[in-house]
Design a binder for these strands. Structure first.
Lengths: 169, 169
DNA sequence: TTTTTACGTCAGCCATGTTGACACAAATAT
DNA sequence: ATATTTGTGTCAACATGGCTGACGTAAAAA
């Protein structure tokens, strides 16, 4: 508030800039999730289902523990959603070969279809934004987003490594 | 999948790029909200309270209707959270002067303190990311994020206009 | 053989969203 | 002047998706 009076404090601009960053994240996430949510709503599913379908599709044969570490929710919370998806035939489970306690998760055809439909929307939104902003801006976007993300998850965005090489099934 | 076999399909890279965009948003938002959530949890509040406190702090004398249009939730949902904040002394309401049906919302000292504490965390996260990425990247980040946001909310990010000039109280 | 790990389940609670219905005062339109 | 619309609030009921705590089982690892 003192900044308003002085009018020349560079910290005011900085604060304003940072608040814009906060708001960009809020609005982008709000709009980014709204359409898939609407599609999901029609078939009695929610955003939590979307996340599971997305990450299982993205990481075929992912284990429950790995999925939990991505989502950062409890196994009880995941269980509810995951067992619904299995029951409804979107996801299959099969025991791991080296470790038979594991349940490796995969999308069924039906699951792949739904995943496509949901993320198509989001991909289009991103594609539109990327196209409009241009390659340099996209690189800047990536850098800033990576800086916002906790260190431990950044490696996920390095030139994509075959997960089979780093995790044992 | 066909892309994997051909190995040279440029659409594969594009798909990968877009999926990375999706994931950047997921992880960034997850990490961006987790620390404020923890602070709020200790005093018995949640993310919904944070959003209200944030936008009331950002837009002093905002009306309930305006707040609803930002948050895109129902008035019943807002009511629960807002009346708690008023009851706990974080937010005050006063009737509008030109329109006495309105309840103009403002943060109390206590509300300002909490807002500071919560968004300080987020500002620091953004500041760190901005610093690391540099000015050009930040501009790219802004452009892409604006492209992701629905058209109608983009004007909010133009060189900040005095709200008093565009909305009547 | 003991301990740890991966996974699951039951039960209950909380936060935050929804819809629908009703109410009232104030502003606006006819 | 009266009728309608708008801004706000409230009650009630329900859904989703988090959480904790407790307990169980099979398989892997020590």
């Amino acid at each position: 508030m003192a900044d308003v009076k002085t009018g020349v404090n560079p910290l005011f601009l900085r604060e304003e800039e940072l608040r814009q960053g906060i708001e960009l994240l809020f609005y982008a996430y709000r709009d980014f999730t709204s359409e898939p949510d609407a599609i999901l709503g029609k078939i009695g599913l929610g955003r939590a289902h979307h996340r599971v379908i997305y990450f299982v599709g993205r990481n075929p044969a992912i284990t429950v523990t790995e999925l939990l570490s991505i989502l950062r929710i409890t196994k009880q919370s995941l269980s509810r959603v995951l067992s619904e998806l299995v029951r409804l035939g979107f996801v299959t489970q099969r025991p791991g070969t080296r470790d038979r306690r594991q349940r490796l998760l995969e999308l069924t055809e039906k699951g792949i279809d739904l995943e496509r439909q949901l993320s198509e929307n989001q991909r289009q939104r991103i594609a539109r934004a990327y196209r409009k902003a241009g390659a340099v801006a996209v690189e800047g976007f990536r850098e800033v987003m990576l800086g916002i993300i906790d260190d431990e998850d950044r490696p996920k965005f390095s030139a994509r490594i075959d997960r089979a090489a780093t995790t044992k099934r």
